[in-house]
Write a protein that binds this DNA or RNA. Structure first.
Lengths: 245, 245
DNA sequence: ACAAAAGTGTTAATTTTACACCCATGC
DNA sequence: GCATGGGTGTAAAATTAACACTTTTGT
């Protein structure tokens, strides 16, 4: 983020400035965290333990930490989202993938007060996804298939955040960094195809998918990796994402 | 926006709720308002009359009006953007086109306090664009070619908002509603092509462009309109956007 | 008549799609 | 050997790109 140096006049003005002249909204981040489990696209939902909407399912999220002084203005939005992701999943760092999808700020979306939420979508590897359930109070957090999640009545306007995030995920799936965030550190082409099929909810031609994929190999985005898969038929070759072959 | 009815418990809780427990950020909307003038893509910049960054050029924008009570939570983000658009351009309603591009909330992007800005991009017709300059204090607001705007050092992080907005505009240009927002109420194919050329900064084949365009005609998105253009060569036929032929 | 730009036609190149077929492996 | 699914080949279809050519206007 590029920022510009202050003039002396600006600096003097800042010292005099009185905040709180106008009411301010609270600002939160809410996350649609996706992974693939048992060939279903799932998202992490939290059962709210407090009002409002107590007992209802909601996207994980929380308030953005805003410093109380000019010197300390708190954390960035991305940092807030990343922090919530870690806190709610209990997973170690590994950002996986995290992208903002926009601000959601209709009045009265929260009955307590004016709250503006910045929506994110996040991806975690399936292998890690399985750990989340175990690490948390089972009744508190749950992987729910996106289809089911959209049928439940979520708290606040989380339904619309989820829908927007899902659309964004589908848009981004063509990009390699997104595509590889939902498979293991090593993977086969059929594994990757299965993920695409689940997300787009349609079967894909194996041959054609393979050809699209092979461009990434030619471009050096991925490389062959050692390893095998146990299969009831011909085993596929294993690849890995290649950030610095 | 779908929202869910409160339970009685929720309602009771809301009554007790004490806001202001944590510091809150100020929230603004900032707009990249585009139009085409003299075959240049231009955006409206405001010369700041107050600190911080006094005298520097900035995107038009302002604080989101947040009500001070639970009953009145103020205006929506879209409404705030739409209001600023009207206030800064002095143009009558006619939304033209307005779309959110995301939240920009790095700490210290504003030296006074933590400010989170929601960026929008807006389109106004060229014919209207010319009026804006006249209606405002000339030294206050100015149409600046996007290329020049990106060379000037804009206030805050407006450079990054502008860049993001421009990218979004280019993405959306294929959609009819966006494409037609930058030409007159009636227009010719060459006029429309000129707009595309300016925005994508490349010359387009007239024949091929025409064919792409004609699909919209077949789909009934547009229709022929009466009228002519004064030209030094063969005049093109005139069309109009057709919301309910 | 001439220049200029609209509009039409045609063809090659590229990408997408569909589907046949061979191959390696576990059982 | 046989079923299963990985991997390869190929050809039709659709889209894109390049460019020649005809038409209509103002001068």
């Amino acid at each position: 983020m590029s920022r510009v140096r202050l003039t002396d006049e600006d600096a003097r003005f800042v010292e005099k400035y009185r905040p709180d002249a106008y009411p301010r909204p609270a600002v939160t981040v809410d996350l649609a965290i996706f992974t693939v489990i048992d060939a279903r696209l799932v998202t992490l939902l939290i059962k709210r333990k407090e009002a409002p909407y107590r007992g209802r399912w909601a996207l994980p999220g929380g308030f953005v930490r805003v410093g109380s002084s000019r010197k300390d203005q708190g954390e960035s939005l991305d940092d807030a989202a990343s922090r919530e992701l870690r806190e709610e999943t209990g997973l170690p760092l590994d950002p996986g993938y995290l992208e903002q999808v926009g601000a959601f700020g209709e009045p009265n979306r929260d009955p307590r007060m004016r709250v503006i939420s910045v929506g994110y979508f996040a991806l975690v590897r399936p292998a890690l996804g399985a750990l989340v359930q175990a690490g948390t109070d089972a009744s508190h957090a749950e992987w729910v298939s996106v289809k089911d999640a959209q049928k439940r009545t979520l708290a606040f306007d989380h339904e619309s955040i989820l829908t927007t995030a899902l659309a964004r995920l589908r848009e981004r799936l063509g990009s390699s960094s997104v595509a590889f965030a939902l498979v293991g550190k090593t993977f086969t082409i059929p594994e990757l195809r299965a993920v695409h099929e689940v997300i787009h909810n349609q079967v894909l031609d194996p041959g054609n998918f393979r050809r699209r994929f092979l461009r990434w190999l030619e471009d050096g985005v991925i490389e062959e990796a050692p390893g095998r898969r146990i299969t009831p038929s011909k085993p596929a070759s294993v690849y890995r994402f290649c950030k610095s072959c």
